[in-house]
Amino acid sequence: MKGVWGRLLEVDLTTGSTHAVEIPEKVYRMFLGGRGLATYLLAKEFGAKWRMLDPLSPENPLMLLTGPLTGYHPGVKLSVSGKSPQSNSVVGSVVSSEVAVELKASGFDGLVLKGSCEKPCYIYVENGKVYLREASAIWGLGGLKLIEKFYSLLREDMNGEPGTPFVYIGPAGENRVRTAAVMAKLAHAAGYGGYGAVMGVKKVKAIAVKGYGRLPPVNNPESLTSLFQTTLRNVRERMKRFRQ
């Protein structure tokens, strides 16, 4: 398969076990991007039981998914999805975070979290291996304080590289506020849908991902370079029109 790996990394937080889920190529063509894939996965798994699913219960999966252009084009986006506590339906909440590129570089198109942890923990994924670590030291923090502390924690715990991208929740998500956002860096938020609460139910404070592999092979490298130039030309023309 070109452009996508065709598999997702599924983590059961209750038992700590992980396995890869294969997705056929036809699905990638029918359901484009992270939002489309999330809809397919939820419909396949819950289907008729959809009304019975409580968004603030551990059964509701939290999905971090990537799209076909992720990593090949600047402006990388990660789609956070699941059953939304805010609207009780599917929302593709999109956040700008390098987690998406690192997920693809570790050989998977997405991360699916199921179940919930007993204690507050954070997840570190390196090259497709999942580590669950205790996060009581950073529980309750938000914003700049968390970023500073999390890097030193990651370095001590897992010997993580500086600048490892991660997404996290603040105090609102921990307390299951139905509009809580999943945050990346300081000001990037997956604001729609309130998926911070879903992450808080799972007691996952942060998800850091690092991948060292290559991205899936490109179908046509020349058209990839021409994509940048065409995009730039369009932006310039629009700016010209905007100024007039």
């Binding site: 991948g211 290559r214 990839l224």
Partner: peptide, 12 residues
Amino acid sequence: SLKHENTVWPEA
């Protein structure tokens, strides 16, 4: 990475 490895590989 496109120039040196012929694929997209940010880490390399």
